[in-house]
Design a binder for these strands. Structure first.
Lengths: 337, 337
DNA sequence: ATGAAAGCGCTAACAG
DNA sequence: CTGTTAGCGCTTTCAT
């Protein structure tokens, strides 16, 4: 068992009989150093497999080359696609990623944020937890001069860069699609209304109804955005079922859970009740009938978030105005509606 | 816009007219410091919201309190459950996580590894990429004295701690279940055989057949472990279909893809062909008929991996023998088999 | 009970 | 062209 053998520039300097700064400079091709010395040093560094100590570098530069990410839950397909987009671009640009899950919990979210600040990340990407109602914990990042980019579940109260899909439009086209198939009594399974995505998708739903002279009824909007909640509201939904012909769910998994309950009670999808999801994850093509839904580009949103962040990182002083990048949602028509 | 205001112990020392070392000691309750001074310093630190610089700490301690994770792909439900398990325990124990995706690519895996080593992580958790055939890149971590824990897709050639499910047993009970329902002609959709999980599950399948005096036929073992590959092998599978009555797929999504192709060609599942998956992810209850499968406890495996790693971290010199923690697989019987 | 100083690994201003 | 020095923020001997 050979002992851990990590060379530092100091070791190299000593072994080669030059000064530490010469080594440092040679390694980064500083013009002052003679090419002989450079060659010598580089060859030796290569030979002993020298690797700069990132920790020391970060401390010195006051820059960690690390991006922090706070995400409600990795297990959701949408969010894991986002992560892939973030990671691909971030690593390409020489940044590392620290990923934290808030588990839909505001307190945890605040802790995550503190952790990231403590680690002196250069910037933070965040999608809000479902329970988050105040935003003071984000202030601290801002006070520390750490740029924030919100994506998907963004925060209106805070000035910052944002990456979203046009959720209003998404809700609108989803509902329009149901109407265009002839649905006249459409319920909406909605996310909490303090979440922008919840509010916007719902507003889009309402707008679509109104523009077709259909009545917007509060009793047809259920706060229900997980399969578990569908179970809880099972009876309520089944009571509504005889009077409705369409459902617009705020995400795929909720739509799927609704389909399953309805089918078990002998409703035909889409003939009796047409069902729209939102997200277009892999589940959409596993359920029967395959789910008609709204496409949400997680991977691309992830990349775009990093792009916005890098822009800001590379223009530190610049008073760039905060940007909001909005993706256009698109319908993915299959069989459920 | 108030400028980023990050206090260091130096600032505190200056503002309070004491020495840096006094501040350092007071903050960590060193017995030498008078309680007055402690109180004073702590109060002030609190007031200015002092936060130690993790980078400086790590450099000083030669310990980053960070765990590295290399995972084939976050988007798979199993792996994201593992992450949750890892994260929960790691954060509780004061460790941070750097997550890297290999994207099933050995080269990327090697880069990930180097990144983690560069970051001086205290330990590395890894599940092998599908394409990984050599293991030299792991040697370097070992040479650097960084403990490795493999989970799920482990490496036999390397001595290290491991966390697995008993994949042989999993393959055996899955196949036994098919046999017990009366299947006599069972094909296996297998993972690559250089992966232990691929080999073990297949061996379990063979063992089950043999022990029931059923012939093991090479032409009934297909290398096919993704929905995409099922598409590619579509015709081949349909050619086999008339002669078989059971399928054991190496994972749920492959099983589901097979079910879908079979159903489109008018086979009844499970009446004509019974299908077993492996993993028991959320998809299993979305497909119709619901998928009979083998339970794999991702979250628990994640936790266990961290546990093994921490054990080693906390017993640096100790010559603890490498451990392999093996989870017992269990059948989850639903409708597809 | 407190302070001064060295050092973790690295960079960069300054000096020759 | 190369070396010396100071310092990033923190801990920890060693003095006092």
């Amino acid at each position: 068992m050979n002992k851990p053998t990590t060379f530092t520039i100091k070791d190299i300097a000593r072994n080669l009989g030059v000064s530490i700064s010469t080594v440092s400079r040679a390694l980064k091709d500083h013009p002052d150093i003679s090419s002989e010395t450079k060659l010598l040093i580089k060859a030796y560094a290569e030979q002993v497999n020298y690797r700069p100590n990132v920790l020391a570098l970060s401390l010195r530069r006051q820059k960690s080359n690390t991006i922090g990410l706070i995400i409600p839950a990795i297990v959701h397909h949408f969010f894991s696609s986002v992560i892939s987009g973030i990671e691909d671009l971030a690593y390409k640009e020489g940044y590392n990623l620290i990923i934290c899950q808030s588990n839909e919990n505001q307190h945890r979210e605040a802790i995550n944020l503190q952790t990231l600040i403590d680690h002196r990340v250069d910037g933070i990407l965040v999608s809000l937890s479902k329970t988050t109602q105040g935003f003071d914990h984000f202030r601290e990042a801002i006070d520390n001069g750490i740029p924030l980019v919100f994506f998907d579940r963004v925060c209106e109260e805070l000035e910052s860069d944002k990456v979203i899909t046009d959720d209003f439009e998404g809700g609108r086209i989803a509902t329009n699609h149901l109407i265009s198939r002839g649905c006249k009594n459409i319920i909406h399974l909605a996310a909490p209304q303090h979440l922008m995505i919840g509010k916007k998708r719902r507003d889009g739903y309402c707008e679509a109804l109104k523009s077709h002279n259909l009545e917007v009824r509060e009793d047809r909007i259920l706060k229900c955005d997980t399969p578990e909640e569908v179970q809880t509201l099972r009876n309520h939904i089944l009571n509504l079922a005889p009077d409705i012909d369409g459902i617009f769910a705020v995400n795929d998994s909720t739509a799927i859970a609704a389909i399953q309950i309805l089918q078990k009670n002998d409703y035909k999808i889409p003939e009796d009740i047409a069902v729209m999801g939102y997200g277009d994850g892999p589940n959409a093509t596993i359920i029967y009938p395959e789910l008609t839904t709204v496409i949400q580009k997680g991977y691309e949103m992830g990349r775009e978030s990093v792009k916005l962040l890098l822009q800001r990182l590379n223009n530190p002083a610049a008073d760039i105005h905060y940007q909001t990048k909005s993706f256009k949602p698109a319908l993915k028509i299959r069989q459920s509606a």
